[in-house]
């Protein structure tokens, strides 16, 4: 699903956020990115969703060289990629429901289907009572879940999640991970950047640790 060959990303001349990353993520995999703050996790995710362009190297997503894509093709590929950003990127003056709906509106889903999906997601993430709340008024943990709901709403083939559980208690974390696991079982490829060992130690997943923009280790977590 994702193929990276010798990818580097520099900011200016001195900041090397990522250097020579080569990596393959299989379709249907749930893949974890770890590493201390500033290691380059967010940068890697942004490269995969074409929010940033690599300084060097090749990135293929779903068979497309994502940096050569333009216009309609790029738009359609992006509809198939759901991203929960570390800084959420929610529209602060809109309601929770509207924020989640945006991801589906751009691919012209029917209003009725959109409403149904929004309600389902809010139920799964325990946000049902926030349906009509302006996102500005939510707590960070709530905003984080809204961002996640928007990322998965359009049933994307590839889901990129940056720090999904940073502000959540154990119980809510579990709900979030259950939601992602279900999507994974349904066939979606999922990449999660996290600091929280509890969410990857339970399953059998590949875990890649970044350190100063390079791959430090790529191991497989074993269910214990």
């Amino acid at each position: 699903m994702v193929e990276m060959i010798k990818v580097s990303r520099n900011y200016g001349t001195d900041i090397k956020a990522l250097t020579d990353i080569s990596l393959t993520i299989d379709t249907g995999e749930m893949f974890f990115l770890i590493g201390r703050s500033g290691a380059g996790k967010t940068t890697l995710l942004k490269l995969i969703c074409n929010m940033e362009t690599p300084s060097n190297g090749l990135i293929e997503v779903a068979g497309y060289n994502i940096n050569n894509l333009k216009g309609k093709k790029l738009a359609h590929l992006r509809q198939k990629i759901g991203v929960a950003y570390q800084d959420f990127k929610l529209l602060n003056n809109r309601t929770v429901a509207e924020n989640i709906a945006i991801a589906m509106e751009v691919s012209y889903k029917k209003p009725l289907a959109i409403r149904q999906t929004v309600r389902d997601l809010l139920l799964q993430l325990q946000l049902t009572d926030k349906h009509n709340t302006i996102t500005e008024e939510l707590s960070r943990g709530e905003q984080q879940r809204v961002a996640l709901a928007r990322a998965v709403a359009n049933s994307p083939r590839l889901i990129l999640v940056d720090e999904p559980t940073g502000n959540l208690d154990a119980n809510t974390t579990e709900r979030v991970m259950n939601l992602l696991s279900r999507r994974n079982k349904a066939g979606a490829t999922i990449v999660i950047a996290t600091h929280d060992p509890s969410i990857y130690q339970k399953g059998n997943h590949r875990v890649m640790e970044l350190r100063d923009g390079t791959i430090h280790s790529l191991t497989r977590s074993k269910a214990s």
Binding site: A75, K89, L91, I102
Partner: peptide, 16 residues
């Protein structure tokens, strides 16, 4: 600006 940026990120086409 914010919203238009986001629309592009979630895959809105130019015509949209």
């Amino acid at each position: 600006q914010d919203e238009l940026e986001l629309l592009k990120l979630v895959g809105a086409t130019n015509s949209y």
